[in-house]
Simulated assay, not measured.
Amino acid sequence: MELAPLPLWQLVGEELNLSCLVSGRAPRDHLSVVLLRGEEELGRQPMGKGEPDEVMFTVQPRREDHGTNFSCRWELDLRSQGLELFQNTSAPRKLQTYVLPSTDPQLEAPLVVEVGSRWPVKGTLDGLFPAWDAEVYVVLGDKRLETIITYHEYSVLAEAWIEGNEEEEGTHSLKCSVSLGNEIRKTRESVIFYS
């Protein structure tokens, strides 16, 4: 019995098809396949004689499923023939769920910076889960800024400093990016360095 590999990240609320692969399957008319979330039974399907070796279950992952183990178990019930119930459970696979809002990060930055001065920059995004797994960075032009990142339960705050110098006079792109799961959110502003 084997549970097919899970996606690296799964969006909360988006249907997920889980596949239990069965080998050693006789007598099939006494065989059932069970999907487990931890120790909780989520679904059960009997294996018919003409059924394939793969049994599919559909679940809708929740936030609380983040880090939860899923597994498959086959049960061969021969108690009606004076024998016993035989079981075999697959190795568990851990599910990582996430929520990333459709909004882009908020970016607080000066529009104009005088050469020789230093200004704080803040990027925030609310509504993420798990916030502590989000990757956050702030980039000025093509240079990634040294950033202090603070994680809260469902939000992230990135703080950095920009400093203008004479060689960089002109307009520069300032970007804050937050990535989680398979998605990324970006906000871009223009900052002018002048003397």
Rank of each mutant, 00 (worst) to 15 (best):
T103G: 10
T103V: 12
T103H: 03
T103A: 13
T103W: 06
T103D: 09
D104R: 10
D104N: 15
D104H: 11
D104C: 09
D104K: 11
D104A: 12
D104Q: 11
P105M: 03
P105S: 01
P105L: 07
P105D: 02
P105A: 05
P105F: 09
P105G: 02
Q106S: 14
Q106G: 05
Q106D: 12
Q106P: 04
L107M: 08
L107H: 04
L107Y: 03
L107K: 05
L107C: 03
L107V: 05
L107E: 03
E108V: 05
E108Q: 13
E108H: 09
E108Y: 05
E108S: 12
E108I: 05
E108F: 11
A109Y: 04
A109K: 05
P110Y: 00
P110K: 07
P110V: 10
P110A: 04
P110H: 01
L111N: 06
L111T: 13
L111P: 06
L111R: 12
L111Q: 15
L111F: 06
L111M: 02
V112G: 02
V112T: 06
V112L: 14
V112F: 15
V113H: 04
V113W: 06
V113L: 15
V113T: 09
V113E: 01
V113R: 03
V113M: 10
E114P: 06
E114W: 07
E114Q: 15
E114M: 14
E114T: 09
E114V: 11
E114G: 06
E114C: 11
E114I: 10
V115N: 09
V115Y: 07
V115G: 12
V115M: 14
G116N: 06
G116H: 10
G116S: 10
G116R: 12
S117M: 10
S117T: 14
S117W: 10
S117N: 08
S117H: 12
R118V: 13
R118S: 15
R118H: 01
R118K: 15
W119S: 11
W119V: 00
W119T: 04
W119H: 13
W119Q: 14
P120G: 08
P120V: 07
P120I: 03
V121W: 06
V121T: 09
V121R: 10
V121H: 07
V121D: 01
K122Y: 00
K122D: 01
K122E: 13
K122F: 07
K122C: 08
K122S: 12
G123C: 14
G123I: 02
G123K: 08
G123P: 11
G123L: 05
G123N: 02
T124Y: 01
T124K: 02
L125Y: 09
L125V: 03
L125I: 12
L125T: 05
L125G: 01
D126Y: 05
D126A: 14
G127V: 08
G127Y: 07
G127K: 08
G127P: 12
L128G: 04
L128I: 15
L128W: 11
L128A: 06
L128S: 06
L128N: 01
L128K: 08
F129D: 07
F129A: 13
F129T: 01
F129N: 09
F129E: 02
F129M: 12
F129L: 11
P130H: 08
P130R: 00
P130Q: 11
P130E: 07
P130I: 00
P130D: 02
P130G: 09
A131P: 08
A131C: 04
W132Q: 14
W132Y: 13
W132L: 08
W132P: 05
W132D: 13
W132H: 14
